[in-house]
Computed example of a mutant assay.
Amino acid sequence: MLRQPAALGRHLPRARPSGAVLPGHANVNASRRTIFSLRPDKPSGRAVENLNIQRLSRRSNDYQRNKRIFLWSGAVAGVLSFGYTANKLREELAKPVKLDSSLPSTGPLAAAGTASRKVVVHDSEGRELVETGNSTVPTFPRTIDLPAYSAPTAPAPASGPLAPAVSSASTTTEYTLVGFGTRTVTFVGIQVYVVGYYIATADIAALQNSLTKKVNPIATTLVPGEREQLRTALLDPAEGEQMWDDLLARGIPARSAFRIVPVRDTDFHHLRDGFVRSIQARGPTGEHADDSFGEAMREFRNIFNRGKVPKSKELLLVRDGAGKLSIAFDDGGSKKEDHPAGRRLIGVVEDERVSRALWLNWLAGKKVASEPARKSIVEGLMEFVERPVGTVATQVV
């Protein structure tokens, strides 16, 4: 076995263990990495996105599901909103359409201290109505057409069909609503009927002139201060009754009517008792109550000697220029071409004192049948006298 010379061995490099690095030399293997090299434990510092396919799929499905729910909810809400709006529009169209707004109290045509004008509406047939505020009798016609009633050829029976309303002419007269109110009884305010006061439209000018001259003899219309003076006089128990008694005795207005519509079922006897008490309280007494007046009262009682008056049925008390009282009733029976309103005359009282005392029952005095009706009538008259005499208001309530 050959041995290396010692001197030569001293000059050969000594074998190094794997991985050792000579001083001053770079470790080439440490910085070199191939596709087969293991990933180092320390991250490289670059942004790395770890994708989870299942999680992304769930998120996509949830988004699509929520989107479908949102779209379907919007579609259902739109259909419901459309249906609700259409239903509300149909309900509004079925109601009377308001055509006139209230007049502000500061307006030039509004008297000081008066309430705003009531609203006139139109029903589905185009008729002008006034809202009463009563649920049973919600509206009153602004105008009514009445014939010149005369006595029937035979007394009206107490039961059965009513006698037809006889007119002395083929034409009718237009009456305009002045005011209305509800009649209540007892301390709890039980409602009995709604009553409205109508004046023949052609006779308004004469009433305008008479009321205006009572305050200012040279005026043709009253200013707010004069209207307030007239209002106070009409609402005064004594002065108001004297004014109305004088006007009615002179036939002013020449033609007028009270329209009574019960809000609950009643009968003619109940209405008659209330009317008779009011006539006796205001009619002639003592030596002024002659036999003719007593006979007129018996005729009046006999007219009301009949049966029921269902609620919402119309009873008309009509006074002509001579003071004759005609009483008509609409029992809701069959309507005829010559009497489209269905009204039937049930009696006539010729004595002017009966109708005058009955009119005062609603118009004036210390105690009236309906205080709201009296106040409403007075406010309607204020709108008469605020216009020049001879003009007829298109809206008087």
Score class of each variant (00 low, 15 high):
R255T: 00
T266Q: 01
R259P: 00
L22C: 02
P164M: 05
A156L: 04
L146G: 12
S135A: 14
S292P: 00
S116D: 12
T153M: 06
T182H: 02
V120C: 02
L234N: 03
A7D: 15
R343Y: 14
V223L: 12
S170H: 01
D290E: 04
A249E: 14
R374E: 06
V48C: 08
Y197D: 00
A369M: 10
M243Y: 02
L8Y: 03
G307Y: 00
V119Q: 12
K88H: 04
R55Q: 14
Q64Y: 11
H11W: 05
A281S: 15
D100K: 06
G390S: 11
R353N: 10
S81C: 12
T220C: 06
I144G: 07
K313H: 15
V119P: 01
N134R: 06
A156C: 15
A75K: 08
L345I: 13
T171E: 15
G274K: 11
A322T: 11
L358M: 14
E131I: 02
L247V: 09
P155C: 08
F304T: 07
R264F: 06
R319E: 05
G240H: 02
P141W: 04
V223T: 14
R298A: 13
F140I: 10
A357E: 05
N87S: 09
S101D: 13
A111Q: 09
A154C: 01
A202K: 13
S167Q: 10
R3A: 15
P152K: 09
V76E: 03
S210H: 13
G196F: 00
G283F: 08
R58M: 10
G179Y: 02
W362S: 08
Q64K: 15
R32Y: 09
A75Q: 07
G107Y: 12
R353W: 05
V120A: 10
S18R: 10
V389T: 15
T186P: 00
P5K: 13
V137A: 07
L207R: 01
R46E: 13
L345H: 14
Q54R: 14
R16A: 02
I35F: 11
A47I: 11
A373I: 03
G78I: 03
I199W: 00
V392W: 02
V309D: 04
P40W: 00
